[in-house]
């Protein structure tokens, strides 16, 4: 099953959000416009707007009232990807040239800043104070998370707590607030808002851990980048952290790579095999499953509905996804 099959019923409203994004990235400068449109065409799962729409079903659902939250969140996500590609010096994203690669870093900075500001302006459609408090707090946290990711790069002496805090800020927060803000914008009861926020947080954590697992078990074709890319970039994720605790050989190899930054494809292949041998993948999968279980527990606080079933299916999809 594909993710789009799950939210097929909401396709017209997702298209509406897509259309709004398209309208809103229409800048005056042709390159700015082209860069934004290039980004839009690169697509993505649009998972954040989906969470907004589904969560809004627990209140007074009116697409005209809630679409701006979905648009703002997706544009914030898009802007952060443009800047992330400068941070990572990445030439490709989802198989397409990044803005920094097609043009240069400066164009990427201007485009990201433009889209981010536009997203904030769109969010001002709402004069509900909570919406801005929640959104801006999440943005600050996301930025701190990104800074800490740079700080922790190549640091083999980090612990699990640092990893979980990092992925919370990096991924889970934006998904949590997508659910939370969708519910708030539709005037859902407070208990439902809380449950949806918990759901989003736990799904987000599971989503990122699954991403981190796939980086070790996926093929280059599936991933669109070489297996072990995270480690090659000095990012130590859950499977590597676990394996380092369980096996001195793995620890030695990883420390050597992180200190010297010299691991070729063959060595990476061997290291990945050793990581798998420690049971790190099963361990990480187990942790991801626990987060998914908690997300289902959060959903159980909500009344039965089509939206609830769709959210449940998304959680299951995340647990089962292969790439």
């Amino acid at each position: 099953m594909k993710l789009t099959d799950i939210y097929w019923d909401y396709k017209p409203d997702i298209n509406k959000i897509e259309k709004e994004i398209e309208l809103n990235i229409d800048a005056n400068h042709p390159i700015l416009q082209e860069a934004s449109s290039h980004l839009l065409k690169a697509g993505g799962k649009r998972i954040r707007p989906v969470f907004v729409l589904l969560s809004a079903q627990f209140g007074e659902y009116n697409i005209e009232e809630i679409k701006n939250i979905g648009v703002a969140l997706e544009m914030i996500h898009m802007a952060s990807l443009v800047h992330d590609d400068v941070v990572d010096d990445a030439d490709l994203r989802r198989g397409k040239k990044t803005i920094k690669s097609k043009w240069d870093n400066r164009v990427a900075m201007y485009t990201g800043d433009y889209i981010f500001a536009k997203a904030v302006e769109i969010a001002t459609y709402y004069d509900t104070p909570d919406i801005h408090k929640i959104l801006s707090h999440a943005l600050v946290e996301m930025c701190i998370g990104e800074v800490e990711q740079i700080r922790d790069q190549y640091d083999w002496n980090q612990n699990l707590r640092m990893y979980f805090r990092r992925i919370k800020r990096k991924t889970a927060l934006l998904i949590a607030i997508s659910c939370q803000l969708g519910a708030i914008a539709s005037g859902a009861p407070e208990a439902h808002v809380r449950a949806l926020s918990r759901f989003g947080y736990n799904v987000g954590m599971a989503f990122q851990i699954t991403d981190d697992i796939l980086d070790f078990v996926g093929t280059e074709k599936e991933l669109g980048k070489p297996a072990g890319s995270d480690l090659l970039q000095g990012n130590i994720t859950l499977p590597a952290l676990y394996a380092m605790c369980r096996c001195d050989d793995v620890k030695g190899r990883i420390i050597h790579h992180l200190d010297e930054n010299v691991m070729d494809k063959k060595e990476m292949g061997e290291t990945i095999s050793l990581i798998k041998d420690t049971g790190a993948i099963d361990f990480s999968k187990n942790i991801a499953d626990r987060y998914l279980m908690k997300s289902i527990e959060a959903l159980n606080q909500l009344p039965d509905s089509k939206a609830k079933t769709a959210l449940q299916k998304i959680a299951n999809y995340i647990g089962d996804r292969k790439f």
Binding site: S80, V87, M109, D113, F116, L139, V147, I150
Partner: peptide
Amino acid sequence: KVLAGDYYSSLYYS
């Protein structure tokens, strides 16, 4: 520098 700029920007909103 990329991240610091984003951070200052998020602070004005906050």
